[in-house]
Deep mutational scan, measured.
Amino acid sequence: NKFNKELQWATWEILNLPNLNEEQVKAFIDSLRDDPSQSANLLAEAKKLNDAQA
């Protein structure tokens, strides 16, 4: 389904953001699992944090 694909994509993207530490990655992945419908928003937040920590 749509959420499953978005969840998989967001998870992959977050795992590959180079500037997030392990705790941050875990927190984003946990949030994705808690509410897959928020995957686009969570991915945007993760990318923003990744850029800020570059």
Rank of each mutant, 00 (worst) to 15 (best):
N1T: 04
N1F: 01
F3M: 11
N4T: 06
K5F: 04
E6M: 11
E6R: 03
Q8A: 11
Q8H: 03
Q8K: 13
W9S: 05
W9H: 13
A10H: 04
A10K: 03
T11Q: 04
T11W: 06
W12Q: 06
W12M: 06
W12I: 04
E13N: 09
E13T: 14
I14K: 01
L15R: 13
N16W: 04
N16H: 13
N16A: 10
N16R: 13
L17Y: 05
L17F: 05
L17P: 00
P18S: 09
P18R: 06
P18T: 10
P18L: 08
N19Y: 13
N19L: 05
L20Y: 00
L20I: 04
N21F: 10
N21K: 11
N21A: 11
E22Y: 12
E22F: 09
E22A: 12
E22M: 12
E23D: 12
E23A: 13
V25D: 00
V25K: 14
V25M: 10
K26R: 09
K26E: 07
A27Q: 07
A27D: 07
A27T: 10
A27Y: 14
F28S: 01
F28A: 02
I29H: 03
I29N: 02
D30I: 13
D30Q: 14
D30R: 15
S31P: 02
S31L: 12
S31I: 06
L32Q: 01
R33E: 10
R33Y: 15
R33S: 11
R33W: 15
D34I: 13
D35Y: 06
D35R: 09
D35S: 09
D35I: 05
P36S: 06
S37N: 07
S37E: 05
Q38E: 07
Q38S: 10
Q38V: 05
Q38I: 09
Q38T: 09
S39E: 03
A40K: 12
A40N: 08
A40D: 05
A40E: 07
N41Y: 15
N41W: 15
N41D: 07
N41K: 13
N41T: 13
L42H: 04
L42S: 02
L42Y: 08
L43R: 05
A44S: 10
A44I: 10
E45V: 13
K47L: 09
K47V: 10
K47N: 07
L49P: 00
N50L: 01
N50Y: 01
N50W: 01
D51Q: 12
D51N: 13
A52S: 08
A52Y: 12
A52Q: 10
Q53M: 13
Q53L: 10
Q53S: 07
Q53H: 06
Q53P: 04
A54H: 08
A54Y: 11
A54E: 10
